[in-house]
Write a protein that binds this DNA or RNA. Structure first.
Length: 185
DNA sequence: CGGCTTTGACCTGCGC
DNA sequence: GCGCAGGTCAAAGCCG
């Protein structure tokens, strides 16, 4: 499992000059350092279909950075989904990205509202929790920067958006289309 | 004024 | 059973 290392190197990356601007409405407008995207995945490659299609077909990786941060690996930390009495706990699959970026928040075209932040063990950076603000859409994501490599931001998505993207994601889709997945199953 | 962030408290699951 | 860590809630404050 230690060898399990998926990596998104933008092999056919455009020249550094274009540096994959992801500036899609980031309040601080500082989104442009995603020169590397790493994709954690242990299944089939995603359809080049943007996020929605992407996530529809993938299982979450249970082994992200097992050497570094246990929080993403191992037994998925319980996702509490209406754990009412008698109800079975259902865990939604999660999809994790590693992004090399100066800013934490990947603007993927959806609107997110932060609902929590927690200090994570063995990591000097806190993890932030976001929820999609679209009505009826229950997608969540977590954003965390790695201690080992401060340039890397891990974004974990949970659930599927039930609505179209709210902003233009041309740039982001451009990135997605360039991603390559290496899996070792 | 509405939407968002911040932050401490609370809840739950898991390992020992 | 207890303690720890992760995840969520919700009140308060901030900002456009």
């Amino acid at each position: 499992m230690e060898n399990y290392q998926t990596f998104f190197s933008s092999a056919a990356t455009p020249p550094a000059s274009s540096s994959l601007s992801l500036n899609m409405g980031n309040p601080h407008g500082a989104y442009r350092t995603t020169d590397h995207l790493q994709f954690q995945n242990n299944k089939s490659p995603p359809p080049a279909n943007g996020f929605l299609g992407l996530m529809s077909d993938m299982e979450v990786s249970n082994n992200i950075n097992s050497s570094q941060s246990k929080s993403f690996g191992g037994p998925e930390t319980a996702v509490r989904l209406g754990t009412k009495k008698g109800e079975k706990k259902i865990r939604k699959p999660r999809y994790a990205f590693q992004t090399r970026s100066q800013v934490d928040i990947l603007d993927d075209g959806y609107r997110w509202r932060k609902y929590g932040q927690k200090a994570v063990k063995n990591n000097k950076f806190p993890r932030s929790y976001y929820r999609c603000t679209h009505q009826g859409c229950n997608v969540k994501k977590q954003v965390q920067r790695l201690t080992k490599d401060e340039g890397i931001v891990v974004t974990t998505y949970e659930g599927m958006h039930s609505h179209p993207i709210e902003k233009s994601t041309d740039n982001f889709e451009h990135i997605l289309s360039q991603m390559q997945i290496y899996t070792s199953i």
